[in-house]
């Protein structure tokens, strides 16, 4: 069996869409969304560390990689993510909220 390593492309074929008058804003939007994702990942990792420490008092990297939240914990994490994303992107929601209030 050939053990070639494959690198899958990240860029999709076709024109990249822009939604703002200045395409730089679209690029910034992408960067910010990716950053938001990475911060969410960091949150998850800290939570994993805390949960393992709570339970075992000691920790290894392998413990972290192998850790899978149970259903209850996954629900809590999902809620935490939802609220977190809601806070970061709240600006997009304010106009509709104001219209509903008026």
């Amino acid at each position: 069996m050939s053990e070639k390593s494959v690198h899958l492309p990240l860029r999709s074929k076709g024109k990249r869409a822009t939604f703002y008058k200045d395409p730089a804003v679209d690029q910034l939007f992408a960067i910010i969304t990716m950053l938001t994702q990475e911060l969410s990942v960091a949150f998850d990792r800290i939570e994993t560390v805390e949960r393992i420490l709570d339970k075992n008092g000691v920790i290894s990297r392998a413990d972290i990689e192998a850790y899978k939240p149970d259903e209850q914990e996954e629900t809590e994490r999902t809620q935490r993510r939802d609220e977190y994303i809601g806070r970061i992107f709240n600006i997009l929601r304010q106009e509709a909220e104001a219209l509903l209030d008026s």
């Binding site: 938001t36 994702q37 990942v41 998850d44 990792r45 999902t78 939802d82």
Partner: peptide
């Protein structure tokens, strides 16, 4: 671990 976390982020 972090890949699962990225996937969960996208889903959320």
């Amino acid at each position: 671990h972090d890949e699962r976390s990225r996937q969960s982020f996208v889903s959320a």
